[in-house]
């Protein structure tokens, strides 16, 4: 943990074909280099048939550069790159399950919801689920406050999802360039 503090949180974005076992191929590359995966999120991307992974890990620049190249090298990976927080707009989503009676007794629920920009997702007589999206510190702060005041029955936080601030959509550019190269090669 100590040397983790000197390290930077990198967000690795990976576009891949949607084939069985790819997650395995990606995570073993982190494992070989002894990198802990902090968060992980996988879903279909905007381009049909292509999946997008968003993985965060604490490391340094020299290491992340090598790791990303080794990921990129796998045959079914279309493109992989890394960013730091400054380059990204990013969020995580957290759900908090609370006892409804305690929540009502607490009285300050509206204030908390406003301060944290959270919302009530579902509510029954016995339990209530709050939802908050935000950065890690924000979802964590709400967790801390609720834990201290009324206790949290269940808590879950998603992996990070992120979008780059840069104007270019790297993947579509790359796919276009590859198609162009293919056509060029075919014509010779």
């Amino acid at each position: 943990m100590n040397n983790m503090e000197k390290k930077t949180l990198y967000t690795v974005t990976i576009f891949s074909e949607n084939t069985v076992g790819l997650l395995n191929q990606v995570t073993i590359i982190f494992a070989r280099r002894g990198l802990n995966i902090e968060t992980l999120s996988v879903s279909p991307s905007a381009i049909s048939g292509i999946h997008k992974f968003t993985i965060t890990t604490f490391t340094d620049k020299a290491m992340i550069t090598k790791v990303v190249k080794q990921i990129d090298k796998r045959v079914d990976i279309v493109k992989s790159y890394y960013n730091t927080d400054e380059d990204l707009v990013f969020q995580e989503i957290a759900l908090y399950k609370l006892a409804t009676n305690k929540l009502l007794e607490m009285g300050s629920i509206e204030d908390i919801i406003r301060r944290y920009n959270a919302r009530i997702l579902d509510m029954t007589e016995t339990w209530t689920v709050l939802e908050k999206t935000g950065h890690y510190d924000e979802t964590q702060a709400l967790f801390k406050e609720l834990s201290e005041k009324i206790g949290v029955l269940q808590f879950i936080r998603s992996g990070r999802v992120a979008i780059t601030k840069s104007k270019v959509e790297r993947l579509s550019d790359m796919l276009a360039a590859m198609e162009a190269k293919l056509n060029r090669d075919k014509s010779v």
């Binding site: 069985v20 076992g21 395995n24 191929q25 073993i28 070989r32 045959v75 079914d76």
Partner: peptide, 14 residues
């Protein structure tokens, strides 16, 4: 086989 050979092959497919 895929699980075992993926890390040591260029491509492994079932």
């Amino acid at each position: 086989v895929i699980g075992v050979t993926q890390p040591i092959s260029k491509w492994a497919y079932q």
